[in-house]
């Protein structure tokens, strides 16, 4: 888990102005699942998982994922955006322990 918080983000290699492109992103994160004691009772503790992912492009929020512990470890998400101008896509992952993990990708037209 040394890598926790490492964000990967991929945009298509060739983009034309106005294209709707698919962006894929993931963060290395344990997404702790609910534990149970031998009697099957839920162990009450502050689980560490990503509960919000915010995507911004050209300074505007394009997508927000609110997530629960039903999302896999090392959560992966994909979404689309309309590439209207060259600029930066920023993805921020927020976890329940206050961690903020960020990745960016530049959109350039070919």
């Amino acid at each position: 888990m040394a890598e926790i918080g490492k964000v990967r983000i991929r945009v298509p290699s060739s983009i034309k102005a106005g294209d709707v492109i698919q962006v894929r992103t993931l963060v290395i994160h344990p997404m702790e699942r609910v534990e149970r004691d031998p009697q099957g009772r839920i162990v009450r503790k502050r689980y560490n998982y990503v509960n919000r992912v915010v995507v911004t492009y050209l300074g505007r929020t394009v997508a927000t994922f609110e997530t629960t512990q039903s999302v896999s470890e090392n959560p992966f998400f994909s979404f689309t955006l309309r590439a209207t101008a060259p600029g930066r896509v920023r993805v921020q992952f927020f976890d329940t322990r206050g961690g903020v993990w960020e990745g960016t990708a530049d959109i350039t037209f070919s």
């Binding site: 929020t61 927000t64 609110e66 999302v71 998400f77 994909s78 979404f79 955006l81």
Partner: peptide, 21 residues
């Protein structure tokens, strides 16, 4: 409930993907 995604029109298309348990 696995996820609730809030989209803006700038997304260009209604599409989301995720890896779930």
């Amino acid at each position: 409930v696995v996820t609730r995604v809030t989209l803006a029109p700038e997304a260009g298309r209604a599409f989301v993907g995720a890896n779930i348990r």
